[in-house]
Write a protein that binds this DNA or RNA. Structure first.
Lengths: 223, 223
DNA sequence: GTCTATAACCGGATAGAC
DNA sequence: GTCTATCCGGTTATAGAC
């Protein structure tokens, strides 16, 4: 840890920073690679030496947004004790964290649609970010008693749920994202209801069957 | 109806046909607008006179695929009487219809992520195709007795459900899409179970509340 | 006013020299 | 690692033909 950054690493960092600033100021499409290279003080070809394509520069952005979300979630998780309040708080924090970047979130879904895109959350390059996202939801569940098998799958499920909300939000043009907020309130209630239901010992057979199905459907798994 | 096509219309049709053929043969990205124009026997500028952008040419593709699905669904809907068998058959037909075009389906989701894209199913230009899709699911429901309020919302919900399946399928690299098939079998059961549950008169209050929420969340509606 | 063509523009990406 | 020169393809400007 804490390596001294090599020359190449410092150049790379300069490019990322230049890109982040320009993306924020002018948007992704309006920012040309030539502008990024200029702002970073390198040639166009050199920028491509570090980032094989323009959208790889976005990865840095996603990391930033995730960190903002995680930070905003900390006080919520400290204060709230019930599952419902914790999930609600974290989802609200998520909405606030991404609010300034609707456009970039849309870009993420754009690439998520393409399994081969290096920006798909299923792509190894972004697997880390996804895992960190799931980690956050694991925190949400901390303190909620439930069967082990369920606890193992829930973080990933909740992360997927949060992505669904984001997808809705991207298309939501109601003032102040009122619709999305409403959706969050209601869906959190639903989700928590389902979790509590699923935790009920009487439903163990159904739960096991469902979890098994989910596992079978996971992309990593064997057929 | 049945107008005699004007000269412009015939030119437009020639361009679409050329595009369809090249897209099929070489894929979307590998097909250049110059190649399409050449194949259609028009100049590049002329092609742009009819299609303001390359991806507008894809609309024709989606229409074709939808028609193939609708056609494949006809025998299913004639033979099958139970809701479950009808839905299952139509979903299987869907998978078969899109099978040769995984790549194009991915492209659709790519644009669906961007609310402003002319290829988003929420965009007016594609609203017709979406309505036809919902219409097909309305057919699936024909013969199933259920409350009016539920019947009004279900086609759109089922269409959304089918889109979810397609999204899964795009990422599914299991042999012969085995995973997606499994998902269809299991989720159809789940969906039908939910519908039957929702139709139960005892659950009317919950159903009404849920349907109201769904309506509120619809993008067309007032806040 | 409907249609067609040619020539350019622009920006992402690559080749290859140093 | 860094640069310059170039390619390539989507898109636009614009002028003329019917």
């Amino acid at each position: 840890m804490a390596e001294i950054p090599s020359k190449g690493e410092r150049t790379k960092e300069r490019i990322v920073q230049a890109a982040l600033e320009l993306f924020r100021r002018d948007g992704y499409e309006a920012t040309t690679m030539r502008a990024v290279a200029d702002a970073a003080g390198v040639s166009l070809g050199n920028a491509y030496y570090y980032f094989a394509s323009k959208d790889l520069l976005l990865q840095a952005f996603y990391q930033e947004v995730h960190e903002a979300h995680a930070a905003a979630a900390v006080p919520v998780l400290e204060r709230q004790k019930t599952l419902k309040a914790r999930l609600l708080g974290v989802m609200r924090a998520k909405l606030e964290a991404i609010a300034p970047y609707r456009h970039f979130s849309a870009l993420m879904f754009k690439s998520a649609a393409d399994p081969k895109s290096p920006l798909s959350p299923f792509h190894p390059a972004l697997a880390t970010i996804r895992r960190e996202g799931e980690q956050l939801f694991a925190e949400v569940l901390r303190g909620t008693r439930m069967p082990k098998d369920l606890a193992a799958e829930l973080p990933a499920l909740l992360w997927t749920y949060s992505m669904g909300i984001v997808l809705y939000w991207i298309h939501d043009d109601s003032p102040d994202s009122a619709r999305t907020k409403k959706l969050i309130e209601h869906s959190v209630e639903l989700v928590v209801g389902c979790i509590q239901l699923a935790a009920n010992p009487l439903l163990r057979p159904l739960r096991r069957r469902t979890l098994q199905l989910l596992k079978d459907l996971q992309f990593g798994a064997a057929t």
